[in-house]
Design a protein around this nucleic acid. Sequence first.
DNA 1: CATGAATGAGTATTCATTCAT
DNA 2: GATGAATGAATACTCATTCAT
Lengths: 208, 208, 208, 208
Amino acid sequence: MKQTRNCACPHDTQNKRKQILDAAYIVFSRKGYHKATVDEIISLADTGKGTVYNYFVNKEQLFYTLIKEHSLPFEAILTGIVASKKMPLEKVEAIIKAFLDFYIENADLWRVVMYEVRGLGVEGYSNFTHEQRAQYEAWFNQTIGMIEKVLVEGKQHGVIRLQCNANRVAHSIFSVIVTSVFRNFIGEDIGETAHNITELVLYGVAAD
Amino acid sequence: MKQTRNCACPHDTQNKRKQILDAAYIVFSRKGYHKATVDEIISLADTGKGTVYNYFVNKEQLFYTLIKEHSLPFEAILTGIVASKKMPLEKVEAIIKAFLDFYIENADLWRVVMYEVRGLGVEGYSNFTHEQRAQYEAWFNQTIGMIEKVLVEGKQHGVIRLQCNANRVAHSIFSVIVTSVFRNFIGEDIGETAHNITELVLYGVAAD
Amino acid sequence: MKQTRNCACPHDTQNKRKQILDAAYIVFSRKGYHKATVDEIISLADTGKGTVYNYFVNKEQLFYTLIKEHSLPFEAILTGIVASKKMPLEKVEAIIKAFLDFYIENADLWRVVMYEVRGLGVEGYSNFTHEQRAQYEAWFNQTIGMIEKVLVEGKQHGVIRLQCNANRVAHSIFSVIVTSVFRNFIGEDIGETAHNITELVLYGVAAD
Amino acid sequence: MKQTRNCACPHDTQNKRKQILDAAYIVFSRKGYHKATVDEIISLADTGKGTVYNYFVNKEQLFYTLIKEHSLPFEAILTGIVASKKMPLEKVEAIIKAFLDFYIENADLWRVVMYEVRGLGVEGYSNFTHEQRAQYEAWFNQTIGMIEKVLVEGKQHGVIRLQCNANRVAHSIFSVIVTSVFRNFIGEDIGETAHNITELVLYGVAAD
DNA sequence: CATGAATGAGTATTCATTCAT
DNA sequence: GATGAATGAATACTCATTCAT
């Protein structure tokens, strides 16, 4: 009774894997990690249940892979900005813009990462491996570290002034960006939003 | 074989309710909403399973009540600051300090609110009532609205300058506060941390 | 929609537990450990799935408990025979008879113990705890040890001669008994079968 | 990406079959029938999954074939002993020795036959065909029948005395042999163990 | 009011088998 | 013949909720 699904293309070898990842992206984004079911993912991926477990050892590792494969290109973009010839304050705006682009695109899924995987449960909250959790954390630190680098560079150029730890300020900036996205504070023009945020973090709210 | 629990007081009627809420506070804080089990709560509350359902219609409403009863006093404190005779910029620092105090005290539980209840799941993520979710949202807006009020007042006094929407700036400030707490960026002296955050949001990171 | 099953008796507290154990006895006997499903057990026990897990931590521990509760009375019977005033050779026959009685009664279930739990799988064969497996082994050794005791006593009285280790001979006798049961070599009269086996192990097959 | 395995020989057609059977021998011996997986077998056989199903219709028939091909040579050896010119009592010891040799060699795998295939499950326990189960049974009876033949021959020569059915006695002797193997009651010298067992079954444990 | 035994819907995962290449 | 990607039926276990006592 085993039926193969209709398949016009011969080289769809890695197709199923992609279908599953795409479906997982959608389902995890909509439902969050815990409420997402493998059944819903395979239904959307138009694949069999076993197929998921051919490509991914379990639900956690599927999620992990999903994040990893979206995270790496983003890190590359950030690295590019940091390494660019821009002036420090321009880099600040550029990097804020890059964060906005990425988080707007991946808002729902990254909310899940931040909320269900990274954020919670010191004690037995999730079933995620300690190594995996550390890796998620490392990814965040990696990207936030890019903001930090730009801040430090700005300080060396004398255009940035840091009341406290650069890392903490970087986290603060990050939080403002993420909040803007998650609270839907993004206007038509992302560039404008990026500019506003930049102004805010650079000059604060105090009147001159 | 029915065992009565040791109970000297005759009016422990509302005692049970409090025991349950106290236990729920601990368990939800430790495990998050989804991983917390009613079994663990009753075990900690030293009560029967049915008793929980005498006082609370279900797990969600128990959580809801828990949050409500902790949220209201906090709102009162904020209201007090807003209504006080302080100067606007002093109010900013005072209100940031109040937020820090509250979120440090209730970090774990409020993380759960933000992450598991409010944050996630447009579609069928949680079993929370639409009304309940709206109420959680309202509470947040209520408290963040206090920041907004102070900002607006400061603007009227000409000591605050708002690049954009006051509400959005209030959310940004809120996010910086919360990030400081959740990332453990709080030093020995909370007042000092409050001051640092205030400086950051007032004057930004740009060198003069 | 939760429905309670019809229940005339008020004190059926430990009833469910017994119903489950009885059903488990039947299903494990028929299907063996691995092929037995919890679904089939609850269906036969006329109980809910959760109930099983209220009384037993998992399938393994259910099986374990089942065996334990049947094993202990048997051990008591054997102990009684060993401690009795009978003559050694009479004890041999009595103990063989007791074994036959027990194994005939519990043939199918004990086959499962011997075949699926005790017998197999040095390496990760079953999911049984090491402690549990050791306990199963201990129960067998306990009962076979009774045979051994009687043999040793007989030797001291000069009516038994042991070519080799008493323990090994006891195991051999045990195997003959078990084989008789599992191969259905039992006639109408169990006493007669016991006598035949006794004759065989006492005097062998060599002609005088 | 299709990789051909290293293969010097052109006629490896039946090689694959042998590789699979050899791997199956190892895996079934280690894990038992149910816990053994086709994946593990092909991994050890260094072959593809489909290949197994080219040679064997399913897992059961693979196991069946494995047993058959090991069983037949053993039967031949037994037949040789029965047909030999030895004296009846010598034949008894010789045949016991032959059984020991074979069961020591194949202890783990035959345990599986006895425990998982033959022994259990009157009703729907395994997926084995009725014919297959009958065949396993027939093989056992075949080999045990050899013991029986020698006993009957001995009786005709007046050196064996049978309290009861020769077949039952043969099974008893068989069970003693198998128990010795499975319980690791075999010393350095298999011949000596064979002698001990022979003594036991011929003369029993009663003192003269 | 307090209790806790009973309940069952919901879910991740395994693995023998198929069949297109 | 050889291969292995795709498949889905089968199954143990959790936990919020109910209700008879």
